[in-house]
Design a binder for these strands. Structure first.
Lengths: 125, 125
DNA sequence: CAGTATCCCGCTTGATACTG
DNA sequence: CAGTATCAAGCGGGATACTG
């Protein structure tokens, strides 16, 4: 079954994907899980400096609700929880790579080295 | 030259890309330009119901500043302005397709038909 | 250990009006 | 035709404190 998109439906489709990925910390979380890695709640707190417990929990819950990460609770005291990617979540990796590759091409197309809006750069602050 | 990413730098890279794409109307605009299509300001107003002049202008300016769309002004009265994608902007299309394809795979991985957060679906309202 | 509950602030968006 | 200017609202996110 091949889906056909109009400009409007394609845009909506991509927007839905972006909505899954938007959120100040989701990408970092994801990239700490790609490749089959498994992390505990406290691992993320160490791996991601600056994140608050509220945000960590919130972003994880959303990723879980969206079927991207899987949560495994070990009912013991003290509690132990593991996070890993779902199969579908893993499948996201190549798509994100495509975006990265696209970004890398930027200066390859005779683009005048982004005068307008530095994406991060500018002279080292 | 092959770029090497850590979880953190990869996340930042993708975030930078997402920042270019975020904005209530950018994707629709983009999809109305993919395939070499050229549009005038007023075309967008017709093609995109609900968009205000302020938002249209703003999103176009940002896309232009980011090197994704090119603006061509014909100095005449009344003014005429055309928008098209840059080469780099065109190159974004396959990457977005990858995201769309990923979204389509969702139910293919034994995902329980997204109980948590319907991305749009649910039984026809 | 792994969370939840509140309060507050900034930024993006929307509505509306005006102009070269 | 192709914009700019101004003002207010909504929502995501940060700081902080508390709990099974």
């Amino acid at each position: 079954m091949i889906k056909v998109y109009t400009p409007a439906t394609a845009a909506v489709g991509v927007e839905e994907v972006l909505r899954l990925l938007e959120g100040r910390w989701k990408l970092v979380i994801l990239f700490h899980l790609f490749g089959g890695k498994v992390q505990r709640y406290s691992d993320f707190e160490k791996l991601i400096p600056g994140i608050s417990q509220k945000m960590l929990a919130q972003q994880l819950r959303q990723l879980e609700a969206d079927g991207i990460v899987a949560r495994k609770l070990y009912p013991q005291v003290p509690p132990k929880v593991e996070y890993r990617l779902t199969e579908w979540g893993q499948a996201l990796c190549p798509a994100l790579d495509a975006l990265l590759k696209w970004a890398e091409q930027r200066d390859g197309f005779g683009n005048p080295a982004r005068a307008g809006r530095p994406t991060s750069g500018g002279p080292a602050a």
